[in-house]
Design a protein around this nucleic acid. Sequence first.
DNA 1: CTATAAGATGACCACCTGGTCATTTTGTGG
DNA 2: CCACAAAATGACCAGGTGGTCATCTTATAG
Lengths: 220, 220
Amino acid sequence: MTATERFQRLKPEKKEKIVATAIDEFARYGFRQASVNRMARLTGIAKGSLFQYFGTKEGLFRFIFDHAVELIRRNLRRVKAETADQDFFERIRSSLLAGVSFIRKHPHIYQIYLKMLFQEDFPFRDEFLQKIRLFSAEYLTPLVEKGMADGDLRPDLDVHLVVFTLDAVMDRFLQAHCVPFLDGNAGLFQAPPERVEKQVGDLVDFLRRGLGAEQPSGRR
Amino acid sequence: MTATERFQRLKPEKKEKIVATAIDEFARYGFRQASVNRMARLTGIAKGSLFQYFGTKEGLFRFIFDHAVELIRRNLRRVKAETADQDFFERIRSSLLAGVSFIRKHPHIYQIYLKMLFQEDFPFRDEFLQKIRLFSAEYLTPLVEKGMADGDLRPDLDVHLVVFTLDAVMDRFLQAHCVPFLDGNAGLFQAPPERVEKQVGDLVDFLRRGLGAEQPSGRR
DNA sequence: CTATAAGATGACCACCTGGTCATTTTGTGG
DNA sequence: CCACAAAATGACCAGGTGGTCATCTTATAG
């Protein structure tokens, strides 16, 4: 990969400051419009040093990108494991709440994610889009397949269509939490935790009504 | 509004060339990264002239923006009127097909739309997001309300949630048609018309199964 | 054909960018 | 305290930006 040993040798405090500032910068401005000069000013580190650490702006972004991917991967794995014994719709509920929680903790990473979706001038965008598909395939697909096998989901549904729909609805829910006017007048935008809890509940109940088997194994 | 009389006085041919080039440029590069120099080179018109016509880069974008909004508005109105007598799900089907058709005809406008969703450095972005909400409220909401009143939709569903879900699924369907790897392995990306026809049909059938009343007034 | 107004033009400006590298500062072992 | 290496620095560069405006070209009217 790109050589960042020089950067890795820095004091943790300095490293964190650089990472935080860079994430912020890329989240706010995308790739092309992000300014290494500004990052240098904000971190108090000479521009030359930043280029010594990462080679190029793209190298710096590569590092941030990998960092973010790893964070997301860990989160998905964790949620998947923690909810393994739950009912299908309960898992969807947990996934949505985990998504909101992740965004709360790492808003700038999510902002970068949203920008990369439709902004072609990001480096590694193809890799990024492939990873998204992989995440969806590795996370949602097996979840749906298990849901059908367990009888939580109506047996007449096409797995791919369920995955596609869930992906769309869940993504949109998270987007509406971050972008004004993308909610359906439902006050999703920057809703406080207790309101989110109810919104997620309502949405999942709605999904259950459309996708759930009539008499599932569980109660409710 | 911003003064564009100077531009309006030009020969239609010249006007169209400018509009087409500008739409292309903003679609490819967003706002900040779009270059008036490049547009001048591509149209063969002096940069100074472009600034005489539109005042600023923002003025030029304002014109393109209004132009695009008007196009979309007309399209929505037309589809809504043309499908007024159809069954609810038939209308959704028609809307999706009309969406794909619009994107085929105006791919760059749709690209600008996608970029504006998450790129904050566009001028008029708040206005844009409000318009989106308005379109959704004026288009999808009454459609769903009529669908429920007509008994096409299950009566126990919450209108807002149906609108939210449809919005999410339909938007995602169109996005998947334009961005690779956003489809659920379903080959939506840049699918040819006949494939789109089938995909839309499958999706709508799927939606009908989840949202439709058991015994609607019509056949099928 | 001329006088005048309207329009087109591109050199120019200040500013910002990613990236370089000679120079200075700092850290370390003896 | 020194010597030497490693790290930090910011002036500098070429190239691009949005925007201006004196100058030139064109069209029109008398």
